[in-house]
Write a protein that binds this DNA or RNA. Structure first.
Lengths: 198, 198
DNA sequence: CGCAAATTTGAACATCGTCAACTCTAGTGG
DNA sequence: CCACTAGAGTTGACGATGTTCAAATTTGCG
């Protein structure tokens, strides 16, 4: 059980254990030279982590942090490895999860390859809607407790620019910001906005 | 056997086969709305592809193109799946390869999160040096036949800007451009340049 | 209620993209 | 082997875009 903002693991205190996210949201990030957060991804269950450390010993410094209250289950590395090596089905499932991560990261790359901040923001919102969205009466609520700051970090633009561009979307009624969650009134219209401002 | 510039596979002609890259270099990319290339990665052997299609049926349009003469071996999807499902060792090896791809993509994200083009270029060169570099007499040659245009596409900056920034590095004697290959005379100095221009 | 963090806003400035013209190079065909 | 051509790379001027910095405002939570 981890509280909001608590670091679940980072390389300094990592002993090889395998974590399963059971509830809550986490963010995965590294640090830039200036100490700025470089966010790789947000996740909800199910998730096995830290994949790179479990399967090969990358030295890359990565932090796994709880965004809100999160619960995780922990297994010893040897137990996990022994289990999947003797259970093809579980290994295949694990592989599929890794492939899913890969797809996420490809979407992240797509995202960052947008030259301008406005389409970059829209694309990000659409991806988040697909991954964390709950549809209700035509609207889609992105059920991820994300701050503008985190959003800015994932887009690699500044907080200020994010704020300005979000404002534009809200004024165009293509986005709402309710209870600290983003709500997309009409996905189709937002997709159209992306194409027109590519 | 594929010639330079030849498309090895894209979604329209894909039938589920599993490809192994045996020799040569390939680039993996998608297309932006304007038809611009969005490069995900460059690869040399060994490589199994297309991972996302093999393990789950993503509809994402991806192209695999030979950069120079490349040879690939092809297996039927069912054969491959049958093989790895009955050979834990092979499945584990495959998983490790996917994890390696994941690490590559994380580095790509790191890369694109640099706000300015100059450090972004330097970081990219350092990553390429790690993946494709051959050390010889203190120098490291990036043995990947990459054009400025491709480099620009992976960095999501324009050809022109790439050209200008490469010029800066060459004038500072931190980089050489020989026989269409990049050569880094001194990795440490280049790393230092990155830190100073973060 | 009150602090700390998050968000907004404005103005000046730096950076990168765009466009257009030009040069260089690799690969082609005679 | 040479001439030709398309693609790759260079350069300069200018405008679009985003960052930076500073200051005000709002929000979350103890």
């Amino acid at each position: 059980m981890f509280k909001k903002g608590q670091i679940i693991l980072h390389i300094d205190n990592y002993n090889g254990d395998v974590f399963y996210l059971e509830s809550g949201f986490i963010k995965i990030y590294g640090l830039g030279i200036n100490g700025d957060e470089r966010i790789y991804a947000f996740h909800k269950p199910p998730l096995i982590f830290p994949i790179s450390y479990i399967f090969n010993s990358t030295k890359k410094e990565i932090f796994y942090e709880a965004i809100n209250i999160a619960t995780v289950r922990v297994a010893k590395n040897e137990e996990f490895m022994h289990f999947i090596k003797n259970n093809t089905h579980a290994l295949l499932e694990t592989t599929l999860e890794v492939v899913e991560l890969l797809n996420n990261y490809m979407a992240r790359i797509d995202n960052l390859e947008f030259g301008k901040s406005y389409p970059r923001l829209i694309f990000r919102l659409l991806v988040l809607a697909k991954r964390f969205g709950i549809a209700k009466g035509g609207e889609v609520t992105i059920e991820l407790p994300i701050t503008h700051k985190d959003l800015a970090n994932t887009l690699s633009i500044t907080r200020e620019t994010t704020s300005r561009e979000v404002e534009v979307l809200i004024k165009k009624k293509l986005l709402k910001w309710q209870n600290r969650l983003f709500v997309i009134p009409n996905i189709k219209k937002l997709e159209k906005e992306l194409e027109e401002n590519y």
